[in-house]
Design a protein around this nucleic acid. Structure first.
Lengths: 209, 209
DNA sequence: GTCTATACTTGGATAGAC
DNA sequence: GTCTATCCAAGTATAGAC
């Protein structure tokens, strides 16, 4: 009794289905993510989706929750490294590249769209954005702690704006075959961070003295 | 001969179809925007879509092009009013509210998603983003022209980042039943614009003298 | 727990009447 | 130029064998 075998669901199969669903979502888009397409990609039987998840929509919600957790963990680890504004920009640049590479940007795009017709998806994705924003807020506080005048910046709103910017840039650059523009944008932000780090002490002298 | 009646297409009907398509896209999402759904919403016959546009996908491309033109015109008019950074923020706030209200944010979301499986859609929407960015660049130049040190800001990259931010904030706040957060973000940006307008002259003194 | 087979539904698209 | 009727492809979901 104590060694009960989790009843009727094999976790390995479950995992295969989830992975195939995400892959399909990235490659084919939301509209193309049908039970048949998922099953073909993961090379398992179509009926398993319904046996494990009840419906394609429910599977998508679950799959996204999975991906989300992995990604937030990655972001959290990266945020812990941030000490300066320049750090923040460089880490953002790296994450941006990784997200594009892995296709997770595409998946997010698809799910934002799916949210129109499915409330559950909307909730899950909004939660994830909230996680994002909270992370940026932490990182920002870290970067501004040693910065004179850092306390003047309203961290929550700034984090919202920065997370939005990050998302927006990812979405635009995903559509753009010329990815180089986004690179230039990160270069610019790097320069600006350095400028702030250089001049903020001066301004602080003004304000305080 | 000179008064030939444009052959076989009635512009009024064409327009009805386009409008119904956009409405359906906003209300039902890309996946729900079927020929039948569009026809039901616009109260015309399903077959007309194929007679006028050949396919649902082609109709969507056309419809988006239409919406796009109207919106870019609106943005252009707004951009012409920008004189200061504070102006820029206030106008962005207004456009943000209007876009959410009109549902055009939702339409853009759907089309970004559709772009995965349809190259034409991808091209059209990227063009539109490029228009956006160019507009922001103009507005930015306007706002920085009278600003000391304004010449130091690389306008193109900054415009890319700002347009991205605007898009990202629209997308996040569309999902959020609590719209108030975005408001607070614009408030913050307003304060920052004022700060820059106040302190840039001081810094300019430093740098130049 | 997985597969086959299939019922049922919905959507794209077209032919042909009006 | 618009409508009716319909074909066909593709999708969801389930029953039932293994």
């Amino acid at each position: 009794m104590t060694t009960k075998k989790a009843a009727t669901h094999d976790p390995a199969t479950r995992d295969r289905i989830v992975r195939a669903a995400l892959e399909t979502l990235r490659e084919e888009g939301f509209a193309g993510t049908t039970a048949r397409a998922i099953a073909a990609r993961g090379d398992f039987n179509q009926a398993l989706i319904f046996y494990y998840f009840g419906s394609v929509a429910a599977l998508l919600v679950e799959a996204f929750r999975n991906m989300s957790e992995a990604q937030v963990a990655k972001y959290r680890a990266a945020a812990a490294e941030v000490r300066t504004l320049t750090d923040l920009v460089e880490i953002a640049r790296r994450l941006h590249a990784e997200d594009l590479e892995s296709g997770s940007v595409t998946a997010v795009t698809q799910l934002m769209a799916a949210a129109v017709s499915d409330e559950d998806v909307g909730k899950v994705i909004l939660d994830r954005f909230q996680d994002w924003i909270a992370l940026v807020e932490e990182a920002l506080k870290g970067a501004l702690a040693d910065q004179p005048l850092g306390g003047l910046v309203p961290a929550r709103q700034a984090a919202y704006a920065i997370a939005g910017m990050f998302l927006g840039i990812e979405l635009i650059s995903r559509l753009d075959p010329e990815r180089s523009e986004a690179e230039a944008v990160f270069d610019m932000m790097g320069s600006m961070a350095q400028l702030v780090e250089q001049f903020a002490p001066m301004l602080a002298g003004f304000v305080q003295g």
